[in-house]
């Protein structure tokens, strides 16, 4: 049989053997048999020395073609086989993806801290520093320095937990204002601060009163601070917290530590100002108190009120949270029922 005949024959047999091999091992055996060192193909190549030189080139090309074909077919067969095996294995490994996952606690921030952190970030972005003061405050800083001398009628508005005649649980974070004003060196720049923290009042706890709650005080002092600056700052904050579409209004009010004093209302977010039970049919909801720092407060802290002025505001964080999240009982903040608290996990910013 001439070499061409053998090659043709070998090609047919080889292809049929590849087709028959159904496992990786068999396929390997076939590979060795067909294109290995001792294969017939190699033998044919070796026997070329007996052929006429002019035919060698042609046979060589034919052998290579067959080898290439075998290689190609062997690779294809192997790939196909592996694919099938993987597919079979994975089919066996099927799970019910609808069964629930194994989960544990998610963790959540307390709603009052969600409000506080958001406000702090807002003010830090505008160059305010965050200041912390003592909760066990002296009468001096909590009242005297804040233009509330002993026997001031406004002290009636704040039922106070006294510890001794001079020390008390602070009823307001305003004491931080005095402490910071005393220390601030205006030659090094303006003072912009917020002071958050717990405060205490001698109120019996009920749905709208809590003997402990949280406030945030804010203060800006320098030359040339105006009431327009206060108004603009408060409006930005109110819109940041309660939404860009809210209207605001300032009303005259009274605080011993500011003059003029104002309270700010925002248009009711429930009825959009039309009047409903939440806003007591006024269309407005009171959100904070503010004003221009009283000259006595500046002077008490050693700041020349003829040169420096400023504004201050106080925010009830519980109240903000109540309004923002529609909470109807302030005690919910301090009962620590996880079913209440965990719902705030998605409010994390």
């Amino acid at each position: 049989m001439d070499l061409f005949e053998r090659l043709k024959d070998l090609r047919e047999k080889g292809l049929s053997e590849i087709d028959k091999a159904q496992t990786e091992e068999k396929l390997n055996d076939v590979r060795v048999k067909l294109i290995g060192r001792k294969s017939e193909l190699t033998e044919i190549l070796h026997s070329m020395k007996d052929v006429e030189p002019e035919q060698r080139r042609e046979i060589g090309q034919s052998v290579n073609k067959v080898r290439d074909l075998f290689n190609q077919k062997l690779d294809d067969a192997k790939n196909e086989l592996v694919e099938k095996l993987i597919a079979e294995q994975m089919a066996k490994e099927k799970i019910d993806v609808t069964l629930p996952g194994r989960s544990n606690h998610l963790g959540s921030k307390h709603p009052i801290y969600i409000i506080l952190d958001d406000l702090e970030e807002f003010f830090i972005g505008m160059g305010y520093k965050v200041v912390q003061g003592p909760e066990i405050e002296t009468d001096h800083y909590c009242f005297e320095m804040m233009n509330l001398p002993k026997d001031h009628p406004a002290r009636d508005m704040q039922e106070t937990f006294y510890i001794d005649p001079e020390d008390l649980l602070r009823t307001q974070t305003s004491g931080d204002q005095a402490r910071v004003l005393e220390k601030h060196d205006f030659s090094k720049g303006p003072l912009k601060m917020v002071g958050p923290g717990k405060v205490y009042r001698r109120d019996d706890d009920d749905a709208t009163h809590s003997h402990q709650f949280m406030q945030m005080e804010g203060l800006v002092a320098d030359k040339n601070i105006t009431m327009g600056d206060l108004k603009g700052t408060l409006e930005l904050m109110a819109k940041h917290v309660f939404g860009q579409n809210r209207q605001t209004r300032l009303r005259p009010s009274y605080f011993p530590f500011t003059e003029p004093s104002v309270e700010m209302d925002v248009s009711c977010f429930n009825c959009d100002g039309k009047g409903c039970a939440i806003c007591k049919y006024t269309g407005w909801i009171e959100v904070l108190g503010a004003g221009m720092i009283h000259p006595n407060v500046l002077e008490n802290a050693g700041v020349d009120s003829s040169v420096y002025s400023g504004f201050a505001f106080g925010v009830g964080l519980d109240r903000f949270a109540i309004l923002k999240y529609g909470i109807d009982d302030i005690r919910d903040f301090y009962t620590n029922d996880v079913r209440f608290l965990e719902q705030f996990s998605r409010e994390e910013k």
Binding site: E120, G127, V130, T226, R251
Partner: peptide, 19 residues
Amino acid sequence: YDRIESTQPVLPETHGGYS
């Protein structure tokens, strides 16, 4: 108060933040 223009304090830059 409604007629007072809302402004922002015009002040030298301050560095805000936590302690």
